[in-house]
């Protein structure tokens, strides 16, 4: 009896983590990551890679609700169903630095995978691109944010009701399309 309880205590949290998507990233994210790294032409070491499912986001929104001054942050988090994040460090520092042309070349790969950019910027050493799905049914339900600064590559996938996320950003922060100008 004690042994059964121990097994349940051990397995339950692991199952919970898996069911809430709080371990690892899925295949689609990995495929997008591979395409990006392939286009960048450099080798990267994974510093951090994880996914956050609805359960953990919900819990996080409680904490944000208690700590954040602005109500919209908590409201925005309620609209997000899952987030996948990857942070990677460049290994080969001798390779040429990426520039805006890299983003354009990357766009070809992303288009073939069913993504289109809405914003892409190059500001000195920092490259950023935001992609949404080409599928009319999925528009503003899934978004990729790709950021490359110096030797660090960050890829974020956000799923949820992104219309509201953008709406809050517009309302509260006056989302600047020309924020990189």
């Amino acid at each position: 009896m004690k042994q059964n309880k121990s097994i349940i205590v051990i397995i339950a949290p692991i199952l919970l983590l898996f069911l809430t998507g709080c371990i690892g990233v899925n295949r689609q994210f990995s495929q997008v990551k591979d395409k990006i790294m392939g286009e960048l032409g450099s080798d990267y070491r994974t510093e951090f890679q994880f996914s956050v499912g609805p359960a953990l986001i919900h819990v996080s929104s409680w904490l944000v609700d208690m700590s954040a001054d602005e109500e919209y942050v908590d409201d925005m988090m309620r609209e997000i169903s899952s987030v996948q994040v990857g942070i990677y460090n460049k290994i080969d520092e001798n390779k040429d630095k990426a520039n805006f042309s890299t983003l354009i070349a990357l766009d070809d790969h992303m288009k073939k995978s069913g993504w289109k950019y809405i914003v892409r910027t190059a500001d000195g050493d920092e490259l950023t691109a935001v992609y949404i799905s080409n599928d009319p049914e999925e528009v503003l339900k899934k978004m990729y944010v790709i950021s490359l600064e110096d030797e660090k590559l960050v890829i974020v996938e956000v799923n949820g009701n992104l219309q509201k996320v953008i709406s809050y950003a517009l309302k509260e922060k006056k989302f600047k399309i020309n924020s990189e100008l």
Partner: peptide
């Protein structure tokens, strides 16, 4: 002009504009 110090491109299609 792609090698300029700062470059920004924005493209919002009809689907995104309708959603907004």
């Amino acid at each position: 002009l792609e090698k300029s110090a700062g470059v920004t491109e924005v493209e919002l299609g009809q689907d995104v504009l309708s959603a907004l």
